[in-house]
């Protein structure tokens, strides 16, 4: 998998779950999430199918009440609700406006 790299080998990157409300970011890559176990690859695939691909612009719209979970994110004009576990799979960089 050329796009799935472990956090250890990548430069310290910003993850989507660390972004503030209103942040505009761009997807860098997707990383593994041990919480999902054997499911992880399926989760990566579904995220990509929904448009969370390297280069895609994202906007953090809001958070849930407890533990700021889940997150609402807009990608390509479509809004999605992601839990922190999924959001932590998405490495992003801040967009320079």
């Amino acid at each position: 998998m050329n796009t799935v790299i472990s956090p250890a080998t990548s430069a310290p990157a910003l993850r989507l779950d660390q972004c503030a409300k209103g942040a505009r970011v761009r997807v860098v890559n997707l990383i593994d999430q041990p919480l999902f176990g054997a499911q992880d690859e399926h989760v990566s695939l579904r995220l990509k199918e929904l448009g969370f691909l390297p280069g895609a612009p994202l906007k953090v719209i809001g958070f849930g009440l407890l533990g700021a979970d889940p997150l609402a994110v807009q990608v390509n004009g479509t809004k999605f609700a992601l839990r922190r576990a999924e959001a932590a799979k998405i490495c992003v960089e801040l967009m320079t406006v």
């Binding site: 176990g37 499911q39 995220l47 929904l50 809004k79 999605f80 609700a81 992601l82 999924e86």
Partner: peptide, 12 residues
Amino acid sequence: REEFPLLLELPS
């Protein structure tokens, strides 16, 4: 416990 993703579309 096993985590499953939420991944819910919030339609217009």
